[in-house]
């Protein structure tokens, strides 16, 4: 029964209406997560470095921004981006892009704190050693502080990527046809097998997240 359900809906679950030029389903979930993941990682690195190297004023305003972003639900941020970005820019922005923007922003906020903490965990002596060698603060950061700091941060990056992958399901609330949205469509059509439909979806996310965690661990193991 679960098998026929899967067989009947597999294509739709995996790529939505890709043939009609509208990617959806698992493919869109992976796409959203990858795009937002790359942006969040870059933003988190930039934010964390700014929180370390910036002027006191920049640090203060960034800290407030990060605290606010961390204190509101992701869903709320998705609403902000979905309803207000188009009005602000005066153009029609596809829902997918607003969701990517929201996910990138909130995860960058979390990551910038990890990056800041990871840099702070490297002893003061290292900075002094860099200065003693005649390096500038930026050179010290680039060549002495960041390489070991990034290795220490890798586990928190992996956790954040997993959180992001799970949170991409929230695109559902603004009608983006990603995996969870497609699954509820199928559930509404079939009506009778909700446990099976959402069970399949949960297993797929579980495999994705465990896969990400596993490859992250391997990566962390190799970089030691």
């Amino acid at each position: 029964m679960m098998l026929t359900l899967l067989q009947d809906n597999l294509d739709y679950l995996l790529w939505g209406n890709l043939a009609q030029g509208q990617p959806g389903g698992l493919l869109l979930t992976v796409g959203i997560s990858l795009a937002a993941g790359v942006l969040a990682t870059l933003g988190g690195l930039a934010g964390g470095i700014a929180l370390t190297m910036g002027s006191p004023r920049l640090k203060r305003s960034l800290t407030v921004l990060v605290q606010v972003l961390r204190a509101i639900p992701v869903l709320m941020l998705i609403f902000w981006c979905y309803f207000l970005l188009p009005i602000l820019f005066g153009i029609d922005i596809p829902g997918v892009l607003t969701v990517i923007a929201a996910l990138a922003l909130i995860n960058a906020a979390y990551l910038s704190q990890s990056v800041q903490a990871g840099i702070a965990a490297i002893g003061k002596g290292q900075w002094m050693a860099g200065a003693a060698l005649g390096m500038t603060r930026w050179q010290t950061l680039r060549h002495i502080i960041l390489p070991p700091a990034l290795r220490h941060m890798l586990p928190s990056f992996i956790n954040q990527w997993i959180t992001l992958l799970k949170d991409s399901s929230l695109a559902y609330v603004v009608g983006v046809a990603e995996f969870t949205f497609v699954a509820t469509q199928i559930n509404n059509r079939e009506q009778v097998y909700p446990l099976q439909v959402f069970g399949i979806v949960a297993i797929a996310y579980l495999l994705l997240c465990s896969g990400l965690e596993w490859s992250g661990r391997r990566l962390a193991g190799n970089s030691r």
Binding site: I162, K166, D167, S168, S169, L170, Y172, T180, A183, T184, N187, P194, L195, F198, G199, V201, A202, Y205, L206, C209, S210, E213
Partner: peptide, 11 residues
């Protein structure tokens, strides 16, 4: 921990 909360709520 490894499945989205939204899916669990719907389930």
């Amino acid at each position: 921990r490894n499945t989205p909360l939204l899916v669990q709520v719907l389930l």
